[in-house]
Design a protein around this nucleic acid. Structure first.
Length: 842
RNA sequence: GCCCCCGUGGUGGAACUGGUAGACGCGCCGCACUCAAAAUGCGGUUCCGCAAGGAGUGCCCGUUCGAUUCGGGCCGGGGGCACCA
């Protein structure tokens, strides 16, 4: 006896239990099958699942389930990116321990995720905050250190005064900390760095092999790595071997040089300032001015003439003045440049302000005199003028010629400079992976012996004062030196949490107790076949993960170099906002969707019945209160309706607007499929139209899922449902019913299992074979031909497929509507595209 | 400033390598069932027009028998990078 309506609450629980009991989603179940590694970016355990997670994990789940049904061994794991600042903030605000807070959040979010019915191998669940994860990370860190890929250096770093920690360049956005939003300060500290720059070239060239990554992401990484090729050379002081090294991407403009400029932080500037108080003051001013966007935009080009001069390398009697300027950065190139005002806007602004010479050396054909006028630098294409042996050359030729001359004469060399910096990984925080080194007064920096790993975070810490609790811990940091045994000090910095997420996909694939992973498992599963996550990780996480994979391959631990063969960046889940003005000066007040009743174009507040303003559809955020909690929705509609909503309508890479009407529609479709699936079966007779519709749907849905075009797959399933319901009973219709349930099984797994079992099937539909379309049925025997006159559609006719050109032309010319358009005229030309159209040109 | 992406009905979006624009969903309108409502089913829904017909994929121009698709120029929206030499 089947029920009239699908009851998701009962079905969800029943089938989730059944999958658990049968260990359906265990990756090791089918060792002989070809592997498929499907991975979504693991979540930070903030406390509750949000709709963005639901969308992300639903997409991955559909792929994982479809892969399993089509004969793959599927690895589809889940874990927790569990270290990070929010846990410490919670500790400071609420007095809870970061570990307790994090683990409670994990438990809550795990049970929320389980309610979605995800096909996840929970036996491989991991959390980065547990010693059995971060201990292996410490071992890998020591391996990289032994290979020379970890360095410790004194460096000017980005200091976040609110989070009281150092940030990587990648984590500073518009001069502010990516998490705290605080204005970042420059500080000099001794820090641990991972030498990502050793792999700059490889990370860049590797992008071209990633043909299943979005172009946008590859482009962003390319820009971030920022390769520049040019010339590095030295301007000598007259009658001296010393000089100032500069880097330029425009060696062709060397004859247009009018000054040499060094950064305020340049050693030369610091050296001179020792005896020049005015310069010292100028340098102090430069450092004080912020790096925020607004300040940079309006900052005036300022300089200080050192009074020194240097020789031009191509003409030693030509001397150039040396300035300290505020717009040259110490941490790019050599921290010094030559100014060529005619062809660089910044140099031109500067030269005009201080009345330095401006000489044209590139001309676009019309103007070529040496005196450069105007306030706009010429940066376009052209050929060289006023440049001696370079005259007449193109810019590209001149670049090559100057570099060749410099190398031949020994005063400079071609060089590649990268925007990418080494990755500073020290964080002055508690809730992270302890860096496994010990500082000894006599032995220096000593790695913790591997036998003593993991270096476990102490639990007894306090958060009553700002700063790093590890540093304040009474005993933890005091240890004997592993080498000499003398009293020594543990490193109290922890690793950037992006290190944790740089190799978790390896640990998912392989979880030996005594090693981070083993080689054979990695070889079987990696690279990840499909990786899915938000585009906000386009640079940070995805670049670091590519780097770690390369670094681990470099030291011989694994054999893959690119971790993610295919990447998909999904859009956000959005919702309209509901607000009211609170009068002058006060911020608007916002209302939760559940507090509001939607009425046609407007909306009213449930509590007082008065209207509220319906605002734009924007990303769900707590501050605008336009959030919908997945738990409440699942309670109301069940997991399958929510999953269907996540896949419907919007292309997965674009934003998806959540709406009450939308989820209602999905709920109705789930019930409709239930009626289709539970309708009486056991009919006989064939129905060719339905057979063809099924074949088309199978082929289309399969292709759409493989292309992650879930919205199109959903549309095709709707079409099949429409055809199915209109068809009279037949064996073909029975077969179509079976096919549509199989096709929806990855998307609506609970409903599919329920219907499947109602048919008396003893196995799970999750283990069933994915349907295959009969190729013979995919070939149409009739086609619709468009009849056009002068490119405009006048009629359509149905003919047998493969109808000859002549026959089509004759049919078209004989057509009533075509005749009426021709009105007796003789066609000038007739274009016939077989099986498509006839176009008559007058 | 530099680089990249996107503009299609009331709405989310379909449309393979140039070949019947608007699939499919949401919403809306009408009808049936019902005492009534919900649920469900049937029909309609780009615009103008009673119709024949005409217009139409942000705007302008071009290539073509034929352009949402290709090229050029604008307008609008979004994203990335940035005193990077």
């Amino acid at each position: 006896m089947t029920e009239q309506r699908f009851n998701p609450l009962a079905a969800d629980a029943r089938w989730q239990q059944a999958w658990d009991d049968a260990a359906t989603f265990t990756a090791d179940r089918f060792p002989a099958r070809p592997p498929a590694y499907v991975l979504e970016m693991f979540p930070y355990p903030s406390g509750r699942i949000h709709m963005g997670h639901v969308r992300n994990y639903t997409m991955g789940d559909v792929i994982a389930r479809q892969k399993a049904m089509s004969g793959h061994a599927v690895l589809h794991p889940m874990g927790w990116d569990a270290f990070g600042m929010p846990a410490e903030n919670a500790a400071m605000e609420k007095g809870v321990h970061p570990g307790g807070w994090t683990r409670a959040n994990i438990a809550a979010m795990r049970s929320q995720l389980k309610r979605l019915g995800l096909a996840i191998d929970w036996s491989r669940e991991l959390a980065t905050c547990e010693p059995d994860y971060y201990g292996h990370e410490q071992a890998l860190f020591l391996d990289l250190m032994a290979a020379g890929l970890v360095t410790r250096k004194e460096a000017a770093v980005n200091w976040d005064p609110v989070d009281m920690t150092v940030l990587a360049n990648e984590q500073v956005i518009d001069g502010r900390g990516w998490r705290s939003g605080a204005l970042v300060e420059r500080r000099k500290l001794s820090q641990w760095f991972l030498k990502i720059t050793d792999f700059a070239d490889d990370l860049l060239s590797g992008l071209s092999t990633l043909d299943q990554w979005p172009d946008k992401v590859k482009l962003m990484q390319e820009n971030w790595i920022g390769k520049s090729q040019g010339l590095e050379f030295t301007f000598r002081f007259p009658a001296s071997d010393d000089g100032i090294a500069v880097f330029t991407t425009r060696p062709d403009t060397l004859f247009g040089a009018s000054f040499v400029a060094v950064a305020p932080d340049h050693p030369l500037a610091e050296q001179i300032s020792a005896n020049a108080p005015e310069l010292a003051a100028f340098i102090a001013d430069c450092r004080a001015s912020g790096t925020a966007q607004a300040e940079l935009d309006t900052a005036e080009k300022l300089g200080f003439d050192t009074g020194l001069s240097v020789e031009h390398p191509l003409n030693p009697s030509w001397h150039l003045p040396v300035w300290v300027v505020n717009y040259v950065l110490m941490d790019y190139g050599t921290g010094a440049i030559f100014g060529c005002p005619a062809h660089d806007q910044r140099d031109l602004d500067f030269a005009r302000k201080y009345s330095l010479p401006v000489v044209r050396v590139i001309a676009d054909g019309e103007v070529n005199d040496a005196h450069f006028s105007g306030e706009e630098a010429f940066t376009g294409a052209g050929s060289l003028v006023n440049s001696h042996f370079l005259n007449g050359m193109s810019i590209e030729h001149a670049k090559v010629a100057v570099i060749a001359k410099a190398e031949a004469e020994g005063w400079g060399h071609g060089k590649t400079v990268w925007r990418l910096r080494d990755w500073g990984v020290s964080r002055q925080r508690y809730w992270g992976t302890p860096i496994p080194v010990i500082h000894c007064g006599t032995c220096g920096v000593v790695p913790v012996p591997k036998a003593e790993l993991p270096v476990i975070l102490p639990e007894d810490v306090t958060f009553d004062v700002p700063g790093n609790p590890l540093d304040r811990h009474p005993t933890w940091k005091h240890v004997p030196c592993p080498t000499c045994g003398a009293p020594a000090r543990r490193e109290t910095d922890t690793l950037d949490t992006f290190v944790d997420s740089s190799w978790y996909f390896l640990r998912f694939a392989s979880q030996p107790k005594d090693a981070p992973f083993n080689r054979a498992d990695i070889a079987r599963w990696l690279p990840v076949g499909q990786y899915i996550g938000g585009v906000e990780h386009a640079i940070l996480h995805l670049l670091y993960a590519r780097f770690w994979t390369r670094a681990l391959a470099h030291i011989g631990l694994i054999d893959v170099r690119e971790p993610f063969a295919a990447l998909f960046t999904q859009g956000m889940v959005t919702h309209e906002t509901y607000s009211r003005e609170q009068g002058e000066g006060a911020a608007d007040s916002y209302f939760l969707p559940e507090e509001v009743t939607r009425t046609g174009q407007g909306a009213t507040l449930k509590s007082d019945g008065q209207p509220v303003t319906v605002g734009r559809v924007i990303k769900m955020s707590k501050s605008k209160k336009n959030v919908v909690d997945p738990d409440g929705i699942i309670d109301q509609y069940g997991a399958d309706a929510v999953r269907w909503f996540m896949l419907s309508d919007s292309p997965p890479e674009r934003d998806l607007a959540w709406s009450e009407a939308g989820i209602e529609g999905c709920w109705r479709f789930v019930q409709r499929l239930w009626r289709i699936g539970t309708a009486p079966r056991g009919q006989s007779g064939a129905d060719g139209a339905i057979d063809r519709a099924v074949a088309k749907a199978i082929a289309g849905v399969t292709a759409d899922i493989e292309a992650l075009a879930f919205n199109k797959a959903v549309a095709k399933i709707h079409s099949l449902a429409n055809a199915l319901e209109k068809a009279p009973p037949s064996a073909s219709r029975d077969a179509a019913t079976r096919a549509i349930i199989l096709l929806t099984a990855p998307m609506l797994p609970h409903l599919a299992e329920q219907i499947w079992s109602s048919w008396g099937e003893s196995s799970l539909i999750a283990d069933a074979d994915w349907p295959v379309a009969d190729p013979a049925l995919l070939v149409e025997d009739e086609v619709t031909i468009a009849l056009q006159v002068m490119g405009k559609l006048r009629d359509t006719i149905i003919v047998a497929k493969g109808c000859s050109k002549d026959a089509l032309e004759a049919l078209a010319l004989a057509n009533d509507k075509v005749q009426r358009q021709l009105d007796g005229a003789t066609p000038k030309r007739v274009i016939v595209v077989p099986d498509r159209l006839v176009n008559i040109v007058l």
